[in-house]
Design a binder for these strands. Structure first.
Lengths: 248, 248
DNA sequence: CATAATTAACTAACCAGTTAGTAAATTACC
DNA sequence: GGTAATTTACTAACTGGTTAGTTAATTATG
């Protein structure tokens, strides 16, 4: 495609994908209902009718954006869960990767929250794509991983679901509540040091909690931490989504 | 209408408060943006203009609803935190009360989530009322409670914030993710038995984790559990907010 | 009768989706 | 190989439904 890029072909990054990209940002920031098709078109640098030409409706565009990011997340998660390491090490890596993912790339987390609220509201089809493409496969793989760890004697005998729940919950709630803590306390839970501390505590806690041999847990935790440095974060991005104080 | 009921005065719970009540339900289910003023008026049994007569604007009505529920929640939380019992026991009671509150009365949780997303979006004034009226005082009281427990030697030496974070996070994430788990697995985390089990595990875990004397922790956990039976829940309410399949 | 409570009817803005069209590229066909 | 038919990519301008908010008139009440 790319059509008539003859010599000065700089624009034209494929309208279709530019729309999807703009939609992803708009939807993750404002949600399905809050997103404005006009704004998506504007940010993609195309006419609004083109959204409809390619994607048919606002809802379908939303679905496309969701599917795009779902694929990305699933691939990344599955890669960690199936990497070449013992089950225990993979468990620690998965927890840390989850933390880092929320930290570096909040699109998914926002979209996920939106979908959860839609599900809670009983909107039909909510979460379906995510469950099928992400949570289903990932959870299944997580279960195998924990079972394997228990069989080899590396991990304690416990309900794999409780472990998964704790590991996810700790991360999700930390980031979810961080803006509130900052308002209540003087301390900033999203400052680099606070993040590093929390990240370390997460792995060390899991190392203590789920390994049969706690010394091995501690050792692995240290190794994994050393091996997976905390990603650089676009500082501004964490602070606040946007500060549209347009009118009023 | 309905107005001129003189002797058979059963309706007429004061339009003003009926509006606020309807608004609370509408806002907690759909959020500020999703709520419809027409629907609030209809459900309150008054003309829409009356909302504006009493509350001025949609936003001010939202603020009023938020303030109403904030007061309720603060009073309940503070009552538990300042009850006559040792710090450790109050800590366990507070955790259990938090669980039960989410279980029985999800208005606040929904509203809170909405506010958190508004804060995340950087909308001015988001969370302000809740922080000032609820989280500020409650967190302050929680800190004193944990400090007291550490001073008397009942609780382990630990960062009170980490304890509070864990206690809240476990509950919030459980209910937040429950609908998704139900979609992925065959098991229902909101079934009565699952809830009871989770509730028990919560207190027992805290009993083991934060008490210096674990036997005392276990004992207190058992006592608190026996003393605070799980509330009856309107079963339908948990399932799904609404199932509007109107058109289409 | 004055004022507080309440309403019916209206308006202005917004926004998802449509229409009717154009210019360029691709395919069909003699 | 040249041109007519068709398709692809794209736009400006409009439409119709929805919704927050208003106004002016009406009813109750102390």
């Amino acid at each position: 495609m790319a059509s008539r890029i003859k010599d000065s072909g700089e624009r034209q990054g494929d309208s279709r994908s530019r729309i999807l990209d703009a939609a992803l940002r708009e939807f993750s920031a404002l949600g399905l209902a809050g997103a404005r098709t006009d704004r998506i078109a504007e940010r993609a640098g195309v006419n609004k009718a083109l959204l409809y030409y390619y994607y048919g409706s606002k809802e379908k565009l939303y679905a496309a954006a969701l599917e795009l990011i779902a694929t990305r997340i699933r691939d990344r998660s599955m890669a960690v869960l199936t990497s070449r390491a013992t089950a225990g090490e993979r468990l620690l890596r998965a927890a840390l990767d989850h933390f880092d993912r929320i930290l570096a790339q909040e699109d998914f987390q926002s979209l996920l929250q939106q979908e959860m609220m839609r599900l809670h509201r009983g909107e039909p089809g909510a979460m379906a794509v995510l469950v099928k493409n992400v949570f289903g496969p990932v959870q299944h793989m997580y279960e195998s991983m924990v079972r394997e760890g228990m069989e080899t004697g590396e991990l304690i005998e416990a309900d794999w679901m409780q472990i998964h729940l704790s590991a996810l919950g700790a991360n999700v709630f930390y980031f979810l509540s961080a803006p509130v803590w900052r308002m209540v306390m003087s301390m900033d839970p999203l400052a680099t040091e606070a993040l590093a501390a929390r990240r370390k505590a997460l792995v060390e806690f899991l190392g203590q909690a789920v390994f049969r041999d706690r010394r091995r847990g501690a050792e692995l935790a240290a190794r994994v931490l050393a091996d997976m440095p905390m990603p650089e974060v676009n500082r501004e991005r964490l602070r606040m989504g946007r500060k549209d104080e347009r009118e009023k």
